[in-house]
Amino acid sequence: MTNPILSGIHHVKIPVSDLTRSVQWYGQVFGFAVTTEFPEADGTVLGVAGTVPGLGDTQLALRVNRDAAQGCVGFDPVSFAVDDLADVHAWAAHLDTLGVAHSPVIEATVGWLLVFDDPDGISLHLYSWAGHGVDHSDRPGYGRAVTTA
Score class of each variant (00 low, 15 high):
residue 34 V to M: 11
residue 6 L to V: 14
residue 138 D to V: 14
residue 59 Q to W: 07
residue 117 D to M: 00
residue 78 V to Q: 07
residue 45 V to H: 04
residue 119 P to Q: 04
residue 149 A to K: 09
residue 101 A to S: 10
residue 149 A to H: 13
residue 63 R to H: 05
residue 6 L to R: 05
residue 9 I to Y: 03
residue 81 A to G: 15
residue 122 I to S: 09
residue 27 G to W: 06
residue 36 T to W: 13
residue 133 G to M: 05
residue 116 F to Q: 06
residue 130 A to M: 11
residue 31 G to F: 10
residue 28 Q to M: 10
residue 5 I to W: 08
residue 43 G to R: 04
residue 146 V to P: 11
residue 101 A to N: 06
residue 115 V to S: 13
residue 4 P to M: 10
residue 5 I to P: 00
residue 127 Y to V: 08
residue 39 P to F: 03
residue 42 D to S: 12
residue 20 T to I: 07
residue 43 G to M: 09
residue 95 L to K: 10
residue 40 E to A: 12
residue 137 S to A: 07
residue 91 W to L: 09
residue 12 V to Y: 03
residue 41 A to E: 15
residue 149 A to S: 14
residue 81 A to C: 11
residue 75 F to E: 14
residue 39 P to S: 05
residue 140 P to S: 02
residue 20 T to R: 07
residue 137 S to M: 11
residue 30 F to I: 06
residue 128 S to A: 04
residue 132 H to W: 02
residue 99 G to N: 00
residue 130 A to F: 13
residue 144 R to W: 06
residue 116 F to G: 02
residue 57 D to W: 00
residue 31 G to Q: 04
residue 113 L to F: 08
residue 8 G to A: 03
residue 42 D to M: 12
residue 1 M to H: 00
residue 116 F to N: 13
residue 123 S to R: 14
residue 55 L to N: 04
residue 116 F to V: 05
residue 138 D to P: 05
residue 6 L to P: 12
residue 41 A to D: 09
residue 13 K to V: 14
residue 138 D to S: 15
residue 70 Q to P: 04
residue 49 A to Y: 01
residue 16 V to C: 01
residue 107 E to W: 03
residue 59 Q to D: 06
residue 58 T to N: 06
residue 67 D to L: 13
residue 127 Y to E: 15
residue 11 H to P: 00
residue 83 D to K: 09
residue 9 I to A: 11
residue 14 I to F: 11
residue 26 Y to V: 01
residue 72 C to F: 12
residue 118 D to G: 08
residue 55 L to R: 00
residue 10 H to E: 15
residue 27 G to F: 00
residue 140 P to V: 01
residue 33 A to M: 11
residue 120 D to Y: 01
residue 117 D to Q: 15
residue 105 V to A: 05
residue 132 H to S: 01
residue 10 H to Q: 13
residue 47 G to S: 10
residue 18 D to C: 02
residue 103 S to K: 00
residue 12 V to G: 07
residue 1 M to A: 12
residue 38 F to C: 04
residue 6 L to M: 12
residue 119 P to C: 05
residue 23 V to E: 14
residue 22 S to F: 03
residue 45 V to T: 06
residue 88 V to Q: 00
residue 104 P to M: 03
residue 80 F to K: 00
residue 40 E to P: 01
